[in-house]
Simulated assay, not measured.
Amino acid sequence: MDVTVIGSASGVSPEERALRDLYLEHGPAVHAYVMRLLGGDTHRAEDILQETLLRCWNAQQLADNEDMAIRPWMFRVARNLVIDAHRTRAARPLEVSGATWLTELRSDVDDIERMLSAMVIHDALQALTPAHREAIRAMFFADHTVQQAATALGIAQGTVKSRVYYGLRNLKAVLQERGVS
């Protein structure tokens, strides 16, 4: 609200003069109160302050504000406007910002990356000896313990540990040859 325009116009009505005085006297305090309620959102706080002043104007309480404690009334109106705005936003579907497509795209990229990584690892596993490949599959892909893997493969636990150790070393070397770190 531009106070200078209201104050400088010729033939200013008593209501307009009262509105200007009300803004000058109570505006900063109401604005600070609304800013606290809104967590520092300046634009919304200015909208709430303007709506509060308009409600004062519409209630025609300005010309005879001596009879009424106007500041508490303004604080109550501002608080109610903040609550109403919050309820309105909560009742509507979630607003979508222009950047959400980027996060959706990134999740698609993550899925594609996972799929490509799985393909690379599958190909790299084919380069290992069958014994190493079976031990790694039993331990990591079947999620077996050493004892469970040894039972499933029909070999000793120490052999499973050895095959997994050397299989992982070879897998790392194969992946490095293919440019995967």
Score class of each variant (00 low, 15 high):
118 A>E: 12
121 I>Q: 03
119 M>H: 04
96 V>G: 04
3 V>M: 07
23 Y>H: 13
55 R>T: 08
143 D>I: 01
118 A>S: 10
162 S>E: 12
116 L>E: 12
152 A>M: 06
20 R>Y: 12
142 A>F: 02
5 V>Y: 15
180 V>W: 11
119 M>P: 00
89 R>D: 13
125 L>A: 03
23 Y>L: 09
11 G>V: 10
22 L>H: 06
82 V>L: 01
158 G>R: 02
80 N>I: 01
139 M>V: 14
144 H>K: 09
176 Q>A: 09
32 A>D: 15
140 F>R: 03
128 L>T: 14
76 R>F: 06
85 A>W: 15
177 E>H: 09
64 D>C: 10
129 T>K: 03
148 Q>I: 00
2 D>I: 04
96 V>A: 04
43 H>E: 10
69 A>P: 14
76 R>K: 11
106 R>F: 06
35 M>K: 06
4 T>L: 04
173 A>V: 14
128 L>E: 08
70 I>H: 01
100 T>S: 05
77 V>M: 04
173 A>G: 11
61 Q>K: 14
100 T>P: 00
143 D>H: 09
37 L>G: 11
163 R>E: 10
27 G>F: 09
45 A>G: 08
89 R>L: 04
44 R>V: 06
132 H>I: 00
141 F>R: 08
119 M>L: 02
78 A>Y: 06
53 L>N: 02
141 F>M: 03
93 P>R: 11
58 N>D: 15
140 F>E: 07
